[in-house]
């Protein structure tokens, strides 16, 4: 690891922001020979308010939806200059910038085969603009544009399956990660950067403001999402599921839901919780998240 601090403190992220933590882990794992293209969003706003910048690597922000295309141009320029082999290129964005407005540019980047690591910091809503629903907002979440009412229990659609969508492009590496598992993030970033071609990583990053939990609970909440099976940590290599973090005992989703204000409306409603448990159970089956019991002798 470089001795230089690549993502400096003093930026203006909220207390308990998991995105700032994950962004630091990513760039520390990638190292100083890295150029970053960043979409508009919380990370861009809190890390680069003129005249300050938290970044100690070359960093560019253009627009909300085009970091994958800007990174493609950076990569093409590095190839032209003969510098690509010595340089990592990372494109990074939030969940709205990835799954909604930036999906076309991302798909183009993946399809064209650029040697770029794309990172989606998934805090499951448009937090920068005030907690509006995105394509990665979970089922029954209370957001400012999927508000709960007597008629609606929050967001009516499940999360868009971005890892599978990325994987369907036939790219060499896709992974999910979580701020609750920092070493796993860094291992996956290093692995991704050792592979040539387009890579997609989606990191679950709790947002105390939007998820309405105590700032000190960020890592605990992140871990619960994984431990319940709602946010499985998986890897695809060359299209095949090659890894999943397994647990001997998966926790009931209610433990995760009750830790956050955005799901508070569901707590007296066993039917809704059952529906969310079904999403977790499906993940547990699909990705085989349950560790085999050890043989007794």
């Amino acid at each position: 690891m470089d001795n230089k601090i690549l993502f400096k403190p003093g930026h203006t992220a909220c207390a308990g922001c998991a995105q700032s933590l994950a962004a630091r882990l990513v760039i520390e794992a990638a190292g100083s020979n890295t150029i970053i293209a960043n979409n508009t969003g919380c990370l861009e706003v809190f890390s680069t308010k003129f005249p300050d910048s938290a970044w100690n690597v070359p960093w560019i922000h253009s627009l909300f939806e085009n970091c994958a295309a800007v990174a493609s141009g950076i990569e093409a320029a590095l190839i032209y200059l003969g510098k690509k082999d010595a340089t990592n290129v990372i494109a990074q964005a939030g969940d709205g910038g990835t799954a909604d407005i930036g999906l076309q540019a991302l798909s183009g980047m993946l399809e064209r085969g650029h040697d770029i690591l794309y990172i989606c910091y998934d805090n499951e809503a448009y937090m920068n603009t005030g907690v509006q629903r995105s394509g990665l907002t979970p089922f029954y979440t209370n957001t400012t544009t999927s508000p709960i009412s007597a008629r609606f229990p929050g967001n009516l659609r499940p999360k868009k399956p971005m890892p599978e969508i990325a994987n369907a492009h036939g790219i060499p590496y896709v992974a999910t990660a979580s701020a609750g598992f920092p070493q796993d993030i860094q291992r996956k970033v290093k692995k991704a950067l050792s592979i040539k071609g387009p890579k997609y990583m989606q990191i679950h990053v709790p947002c105390p403001l939007g998820w309405r939990h105590e700032s000190g609970q960020t890592l605990a909440v992140a871990k619960l999402a994984v431990e319940t099976g709602l946010y499985p940590l998986i890897e695809y290599e060359n299209g095949k599921l090659s890894g999943a973090r397994k647990f001997a005992q998966l926790k009931p989703v209610e433990e995760y839901l009750k830790a956050q204000g955005r799901f508070k409306h569901l707590l007296g409603d066993p039917e809704s919780i059952k529906q969310i448990q079904a999403i977790a159970d499906n993940n547990i089956l699909k990705y085989n998240l349950k560790a085999e019991a050890q043989k007794s002798d």
Binding site: S62, N66, A69, S72, G73, A76, A77, L78, A105, G108
Partner: peptide
């Protein structure tokens, strides 16, 4: 012509690609 020719999925990305390349120090 020894240039990188990037076939993109939209004009939005075409402009974004040349933006990124020009920012990396290359004529586009």
């Amino acid at each position: 012509l020894s240039a990188q020719f990037v076939n993109v999925e939209s004009e939005h990305s075409a402009a974004s690609v040349v933006l990124g390349a020009q920012a990396t120090g290359v004529r586009t």
